[in-house]
Design a protein around this nucleic acid. Structure first.
Length: 507
RNA sequence: GGCCCGUUAGUCAAGCGGUCUAAGACACCGGCCUUUCACGCCGGUAACAGGGGUUCGAAUCCCCUACGGGUCACCA
């Protein structure tokens, strides 16, 4: 069976009932970190594979020796793992079609290219990069298309030997028909027609023995039995060349599906100057993998119903290519942030505590290891604070006063709550009442405040606001009595005294 | 510049010729709840790029224009 077109479906091939497994791949080149566009492509591949009980292959396209780095490779793998996008074959997972790094498959490309040359489908080209660049420049100046002029197409053996004797190492070019057209059957866009004469004899093997991208990509996709190629739209223009390679090699074509790109807020291609664009950066800022995944899924794909908050499992069960759109999307951090806040609160508190810890450590708020008592306190803090913030980093920021006594008071707050006539008096009285409490919990503290507000004949808020500022230095945060209980009686009273002194010293 | 793809509100996005005086979400603006903030709930502003066709009927099909993006490397 072959998953066949946009509307239809599962086509029976002959009478055999043997299912052709769905095999998709994500093939990043380790030349930087995984940005959200790549992550989204990986996600779609993952969802498609899981939804159809297929396999996800991870391949490292590291043929660019000068730009590929081990650090980047590790970073990409760790970002994928953090997101929870596990792969069935590839680095660390193994598989029947390895190795899964192109740098380890050079012999395969070399042998394949040699065979193409032998058959006359490809040929050696001795033009140097400098010469080619010069000719391109010339063509541009004359307003011609910068195509390779085919001058090495028909070199005789004698000529080739001469070039070799001059020390020239050839690149290998694929012979492209001058006429006709190559049609890309794109799953989302239908037939996309390219005239062959706009293509030129492109290089499949560089003179240093390294394959060019299109070549390595096709050889691997074919040898790894990839059934569907889901990749970014930027590759659509490459596809006719790849199809020509498939044909030269006698391989059958996979289904091509080019997903729309993700653009930066200014509509341009994603780059470093657009602020956070990599998964790693979002992670550092305290975004949760489930939120990032959920948000990314909604960029270019839409669920059947109206529910937009979906777990990975729900995404898997709902994901179909039919619901993938074809227009480029601009990512919107605000919506991501909203979604992150949602997950931050919905998530199991123990997990949040665990994930928030590094952010507290980074700010030296908590030590690497917490004892039992510290752990209980930490958990109380996190669960009180998380409801008002949207990221893990903000959880830590909003928790500062739980870990230091020497915080300063918010200026606006001081003006609003401390400079009031009776602020100090209220605080003193409140402190006295709290001091008398035997049990210091949510009920008793709140009752004390209600009582006091009645005795004084003022609204509870009149006392509550200055108290919040006294205890936290801030005007916003968790419920006041929650803060008190977490801080404990002793600290609460001390901070109130400190505030009273502060107010009395205000001129 | 050539070739290719795309164009529904500020953003994501539903819509596959009539049910569209166009859904939902984020953002924004009001209101409710409330000790603050946030959450939550209720309500509001806001879109079919423009022009020609085809059709009884078009956001949906075709063409042109404009705009945006991609690609044209011994980068991937």
């Amino acid at each position: 069976m072959v998953y066949w077109g946009r509307r239809a479906l599962w086509k029976q091939e002959g009478s055999t009932n043997v299912a052709q497994d769905i095999r998709v791949r994500f093939a990043p080149s380790p030349t930087g970190n995984l940005h959200i566009g790549g992550a989204r492509t990986a996600l779609f591949n993952f969802l498609f594979a899981r939804h159809n009980n297929g396999s996800l292959i991870l391949r490292i396209d590291d043929t660019d020796l000068t730009r590929s780095t081990e650090e980047s490779r590790r970073g990409i793998l760790s970002a994928l793992r953090w997101l929870g996008l596990d792969w069935d074959e590839g680095p660390a997972a193994g598989g029947l079609y390895g190795p899964y790094s192109q740098s380890q498959r050079l012999d395969i490309y070399k042998e394949t290219a040699r065979m193409l040359v032998e058959r006359g489908i490809a040929y050696r080209c001795y033009c140097t990069p400098e010469e080619l660049a010069e000719r391109r420049k010339q063509a541009a100046a004359e307003g011609r298309a910068p195509r390779y002029d085919g001058r090495c197409r028909e070199l005789s053996l004698q000529e080739q030997i001469e070039k070799e004797n001059q020390g020239l190492r050839p690149a290998i070019r694929l012979r492209i028909p001058d006429r006709g057209e190559t049609i890309v059957q794109d799953f989302f866009r239908g037939d996309v027609v390219f005239a062959n004469d706009v293509l030129d004899d492109f290089i499949i093997m560089k003179s240093n023995g390294i394959p060019a991208y299109n070549f390595a990509c096709v050889v691997d996709d074919a040898k790894m039995r990839i059934s569907h190629i889901l990749r970014a739209e930027e590759h659509l223009s490459n596809t006719p060349r790849q199809i020509l390679i498939y044909q030269s090699l006698g391989y059958s074509l996979p289904v091509f599906a080019h997903v729309p790109m993700i653009l930066a807020p200014d509509r341009s291609k994603l780059s470093k100057r657009h602020g956070a664009t990599s998964v790693e950066e979002f992670r550092e800022m305290g975004y949760l993998p489930e939120a990032l995944l959920n948000y990314l899924a909604l960029l270019g794909w839409s669920p059947e119903g109206e529910q937009e908050v979906l777990s990975l499992a729900e995404l898997v069960s709902q994901f179909t290519l039919e619901k993938v759109g074809k227009t480029a999307a601009i990512y919107d951090v605000k919506k991501l942030t909203w979604m992150n806040g949602h997950y931050l609160n919905a998530k199991d508190i123990d997990q949040v505590v665990e994930q928030a810890a590094p952010y507290f450590q980074k700010k030296n708020m908590i030590p690497q290891r917490l004892n039992r008592e510290e752990t209980v306190y930490f958990k109380q803090v996190v669960s009180a604070v998380r409801t008002r913030v949207k990221t893990l980093a903000e959880v830590a920021d909003a928790s500062e006063y739980f870990y230091t006594d020497s915080f300063s008071y918010d200026e606006k707050g001081v003006r609003k709550h401390f400079r009031k006539e009776k602020a100090a008096e209220y605080l003193k009285k409140a402190r006295e009442k709290l001091a008398l409490l035997e049990k210091f919990d949510l009920e008793t503290t709140e009752a004390a405040y209600r009582e006091l507000s009645e005795e004084l004949g003022v609204k509870a808020g009149e006392i509550i606001h200055p108290t919040r500022l006294a205890l936290s230095g801030r005007t916003m945060g968790p419920g006041l009595f929650e803060i008190m209980v977490i801080l404990g009686k002793e600290k609460t009273l001390k901070r109130m005294e400190r505030a009273v002194q502060y107010i009395e010293n205000l001129s």
